[in-house]
């Protein structure tokens, strides 16, 4: 931008004022035109690399959702586990890697790369187990170069849902194994801050799950199912649902499919929601150059209710959308 000669006097003042005005207008126009161009220039130099854990539709849906939430100018490079493992694609410190699923996260961690890594669509327990497994992960976590958006929901959100379903909730219980031990720990901690009694029982392979469940159902109002290796497989889940109906005590699942299978309700984040949230994170980091936020549960979620089960249990007034909005309100989320 350039300013040419100035004349004094009224006429000169008038002329000078008019000229100043034109100058200001010209500068404003010039400045307005330069802002998006600078932003585009800042992002145009960035690219991300996405590593999927597999070719299943779940991962492809996540990739597609991620692309939708990124600027069109951002380059998205998709790599397979084999390309990473074989060294065909060497990750550098300048790379920004998004891993989708536990296997991708582990594979990238295993390369001991210095690239920034955002892992999505994996349980929180898995992420922390991997972080423990690979020592440089702690440093990367601290440096904001490793982060994650978990698949599972935070303990408070699930307890809030249980309270919303049964406002008279006094005791809530769950069975867990080693894989969900951390989650149960969080639940216990959250519940400890409330008047809700939290009962949990770690299930061993030698245990009769039906017998444990029968005993558990005697003391709780709501059963909260958590992912696990032994107890929450599909056959145990079937008899768990059977006992829930039989004892008329709501069972809260951890996925939409669980609700469809017979759970009363569930709060969950689907891959699109998690990928969308990850896109926001990426754009923020790339635009600002800030480090990645610390790992966290997804802030975007959904609630589902099985209307048949709710009706049979005398909870026909439950509405998924209302529960979802109530949960968001409690967490002060938009």
């Amino acid at each position: 931008m350039e300013v040419k000669g100035v004349k004094f006097g009224f006429k000169a003042l008038l002329n000078s004022s008019f000229g100043l005005l034109l100058l200001l207008v010209g500068m404003w126009v010039q400045a307005d035109a330069m802002v998006p161009a600078a932003r585009e220039a800042a992002t145009a130099s960035k690219s991300i690399t996405v590593v999927l854990s597999g070719d299943s539709g779940l991962y492809q849906r996540s990739l597609a959702a991620l692309k939708r939430h990124l600027p069109t100018t951002m380059e998205v490079e998709s790599l397979t586990l084999e390309q990473i493992a074989s060294g065909e694609r060497q990750l550098s410190a300048n790379d920004f890697v998004v891993t989708v699923g536990a296997k991708a996260a582990e594979q990238v961690m295993a390369t001991a790369t210095e690239a920034r890594q955002l892992s999505i669509l994996l349980p929180s327990s898995t992420f922390y187990d991997l972080a423990k497994q690979y020592p440089q992960s702690a440093q990367r976590l601290d440096g904001g170069r490793l982060s994650a958006i978990f698949l599972d929901q935070p303990a408070r959100r699930q307890l809030n849902l249980a309270r919303l379903i049964n406002p008279n909730l006094k005791a809530i219980g769950t069975l867990y194994d080693i894989r969900s031990q951390q989650l149960v720990q969080q639940l216990s901690e959250v519940a400890g801050g409330t008047d809700i009694e939290f009962r949990s029982r770690r299930l061993l392979p030698s245990d009769n799950p039906i017998a444990v469940l029968r005993e558990m159902y005697r003391d709780i109002d709501v059963f909260l199912a958590v992912p696990g290796k032994y107890i929450f497989n599909r056959s145990t889940a079937k008899w768990m649902l059977y006992l829930s109906y039989r004892n008329r005590k709501p069972l809260l699942g951890f996925s939409e499919d669980y609700v469809t299978a017979g759970a009363l309700a569930a709060v969950y984040s689907n891959p699109e929601q998690i990928a969308g949230e990850a896109g926001s994170w990426l754009q923020e980091c790339l635009d600002s150059g800030k480090p990645l936020p610390p790992p966290s549960h997804p802030s975007i979620f959904s609630v589902s209710v099985n209307r048949e089960v709710a009706s049979r249990m005398g909870l026909g007034s439950l509405i998924a959308a209302r529960l979802e909005s109530q949960l968001k309100a409690q967490e002060q989320l938009p």
Binding site: L58, L151, F254
Partner: peptide
């Protein structure tokens, strides 16, 4: 069994094999 989730991150192949 019943289908709890199609997300392999929640139920691994090991879990399914045990069924």
């Amino acid at each position: 069994g019943i289908s709890l989730s199609e997300n392999p991150e929640l139920l691994s192949e090991e879990d399914l094999a045990s069924e």
